[in-house]
Amino acid sequence: MTIRLGSLAVGVIAVLTAAGIVVRYWVHAHLNVWFCLLSLFFSTNLLICYWETCLIRYFDLIRQRAGYWRQRREETGRSPFVEFLKTEIPLIKVLSPQAGADMWAFYTLYDESYTDKRTYGFNIDIANGFFTLVPTLILYSAFAVAFLPAHFAGILGVMLFWQWEYATSVYMVSFYVAGRHKLISRADVAIYIWGANATWLLFPLLGLYVSIRLIVDGDYSVLGYR
């Protein structure tokens, strides 16, 4: 049996998000819109963290697959985005590097820095993958069940969310400074560059607000805890 890459990504994010929401409701018997939104963000980042570790671990495979997707674009004359989402992966290999490698290989159609170890984008995503996985799990758990003092959770949140906001902003600046936006169409820039990175620009702003409130209020009231 196989599963499509797009379905795999949506499924993993949905399961992780639902897990946090269910635990929150089971423990506290109520939900909060800010928590639900941040659950979606944390879950997305957890999946991306795993895939980001593939950047350095399977660099040669990514370069190989990047050539494949470039060839497919040349053959069809259009973006192979739908074909990419429909890529079939055996169920027994859902945790294999193929999914992560293919994701980065496809993204290199719009930003080739992910096949160059010297670039900012390549290295900042490796750092995010290896260094924010555990803090993301801790903060997600703290927001779900409030097991940390609010001040501690808030400080950790400010550190993490500011890192995501800053790192993504610098990536966007580097993309334009390097002139990579001139190599693709404006539509591709909007969809695949801004669209793909909007999650790490917008959600951290909400996270910063929530985290600062945790510090200032000294409790979890911003997340609906009473």
Rank of each mutant, 00 (worst) to 15 (best):
Gly157Thr: 03
Trp104Ser: 11
Met103Val: 07
Leu148Tyr: 03
Met172Thr: 06
Phe122Lys: 00
Ala150Thr: 08
Ala144Phe: 09
Tyr171Ala: 11
Ala99Ser: 05
Tyr110Lys: 01
Trp104Glu: 07
Met159Arg: 04
Ala127Tyr: 06
Phe122Trp: 12
Leu160Met: 08
Tyr166Cys: 12
Asn123Asp: 06
Thr119Ala: 05
Val173Phe: 07
Met103Tyr: 13
Ala146Arg: 10
His151Ser: 00
Val134Cys: 01
Tyr120Ala: 03
Pro149Ile: 00
Leu148Val: 06
Tyr110Ile: 00
Asp102Asn: 15
Leu139Gln: 02
Glu165Tyr: 09
Phe161Pro: 03
Ser96Lys: 01
Val158Ile: 01
Leu133Lys: 04
Ala142Pro: 09
Thr132Arg: 07
Phe122Tyr: 03
Leu156Cys: 03
Thr108Ala: 04
Thr168Met: 09
Phe130Arg: 07
Ala150Leu: 03
Ile124Gln: 04
Gly100Thr: 05
Leu148Gln: 02
Val158Arg: 07
Asp102Tyr: 14
Ala127Asp: 07
Ala99Gly: 08
Gly129Pro: 15
Asn123Pro: 05
Ser113Trp: 13
Leu137Cys: 12
Leu109Arg: 01
Leu137Ala: 07
Arg118Ser: 15
Ile124His: 09
Trp104Leu: 03
Ala127Glu: 11
Pro135Gln: 00
Phe152Val: 05
Thr168Val: 00
Ser96Leu: 10
Phe130Asn: 07
Met103Arg: 07
Ala153Asn: 05
Ile124Leu: 09
Phe152Pro: 12
Ile126Asn: 07
Ser113Thr: 13
Asp111Tyr: 00
Phe131Trp: 11
Tyr107Cys: 14
Glu112Leu: 07
Ser113Lys: 08
Val134Trp: 05
Val134His: 02
Phe106Cys: 12
Thr119Gly: 14
Ser141His: 12
Leu137Val: 14
Tyr114Trp: 11
Tyr120His: 07
Leu148Lys: 04
Leu148Trp: 10
Leu137Glu: 09
Val158Glu: 09
Thr108Leu: 05
Leu133Ala: 13
Ile138Glu: 11
Trp162Cys: 05
Lys117Phe: 11
Gly121Pro: 14
Trp162Ala: 10
Ser113Ala: 14
His151Cys: 08
Thr119Cys: 06
Leu160Ile: 03
Ser169Ala: 08
Ala101Thr: 14
Leu109Cys: 12
Ala142Met: 02
Ser169Cys: 07
Ala142Glu: 06
Phe130Ala: 10
Leu139Glu: 00
Gln98Arg: 14
Thr115Ser: 05
Tyr171Val: 04
Ala101Asn: 12
Asp111Ser: 02
Thr168Lys: 06
Met103Leu: 15
Thr108Tyr: 03
Met159Ile: 06
Trp164Glu: 09
Trp164Ser: 04
Tyr110Ser: 01
Gly157Tyr: 08
Tyr120Phe: 15
Asp125Tyr: 06
Phe131Ile: 05
Lys117Trp: 13
Phe122Cys: 04
Leu133His: 11
Val158Thr: 08
Ile138Asp: 06
Ala150Gln: 02
Gly129Ile: 02
Thr132Val: 05
Ala153Thr: 00
Leu133Trp: 08
Ala127Thr: 00
Tyr140Phe: 15
Glu112Arg: 14
Asp102Ser: 10
Leu133Phe: 12
Asp111His: 02
Asp111Trp: 00
Ala150Phe: 01
Ser96Val: 05
Ala144Trp: 11
Ile126Ser: 05
Leu139Tyr: 04
Leu109Tyr: 06
Gly129Met: 00
Pro149Ser: 12
Trp162Gln: 09
Thr119Asn: 08
Pro135Lys: 06
